[in-house]
Amino acid sequence: MGYLYTTREKYTPEQLEGMKRKYTPPELVCCAGSREIIDKEVVFVGIGISDLAGAVAKLVHTPNVILVAEAGYIGFPSVAVLISPADNAAGKMAMCHQSLPEVFIDQQSGFIDVAYLGFAQMDKYGNVNVSYITGKQLKMNGSGGGGDIASSAGRVVYTVEFNPRQWVKKVDYMTEPGFLDGSRDARKKANLVGGGPSAVATNKGVFRFDPETHELYLAEVFPWQDEKDIEEIRKGFPWDLKVAEELKIMEPPTERELWALRLMDSTSNYILASVIDRPIGKILLAGKLNLEGYDEYLGMQEKALREILEFVS
């Protein structure tokens, strides 16, 4: 896991400065997340960013993983980013078309080794809130399947863009159980099946959980992140964040990873943050909610599909 390591010395200061601005935050998140898988594992993917990381893993690093999507698709080669767990793209060349309860039953029986999820709030012990923020004032779209996945998947890799507001002393609502109160056997005592969170892959580095104390710590950073940046990250936490004694330096996104990302997200709906920068925003702003616009948008997806099908078949 996380095997693409390097040293800072490999790069000149100019190169590091250039790299800093070369990648978008979602690209960094997906590439860092994709390196968390071991080949031949069974991987539960979410949608958007939490699917892209799994797709890059399947296409670039670990070709023998079995991808699983919640609505019932199992063992697909990943031909496009999933925009919902029921996305038809997950059905293409899948080895099994199932139903939703069966996927979760299989997970509760221990067949899912690792799952990708996102989150809005997380505490020191990896407990996650995706349901409400500001007390119970604002409803978010959780739990979805997140509550089940965090309970029963072998381990969970969270993929999120770093935001200091997402780290809290206590989550407003615990949707997804992490290591609960952090005590040694908390998950076992609760009778939860899965092993809990294993990593949080962000654009500011990868965080892991101490095997003894179950406390979150900073484990890996990108080569351009210096001591000052790490202090800046630590300031974003409401507790004294620990940093690994041997902080690992990750490789920046590779050409191959970026190739997979661009093909998967062929209409840049996840790689670009703002709707108006994306092709769909531009087509809509041009007033082309007509056949011409549909041709343009679907054509982009179809072109990427042709390329990826050539690769996977």
């Binding site: 919640e70 939703l100 309860p101 979760f104 509760q108 407990n127 349901s131 739990s143 979805g144 399947g145 997140g146 509550g147 089940d148 309970s151 029963s152 609502y173 615990m174 949707t175 997804e176 159980p177 609960l180 908390a186 998950r187 609760a190 009778n191 939860l192 099946v193």
Partner: peptide, 29 residues
């Protein structure tokens, strides 16, 4: 959770009052 909603239909289809599960134990749900 999604599994729990699915299990509501499964229990309905089974014609039994409930289905047991191990999701979200210890959480706020």
């Amino acid at each position: 959770t999604n599994f729990q909603v699915a299990l509501r239909f499964v229990a309905g289809a089974f014609n039994v009052p409930f289905m047991p599960c191990r999701s979200s134990i210890g959480s706020d749900i």
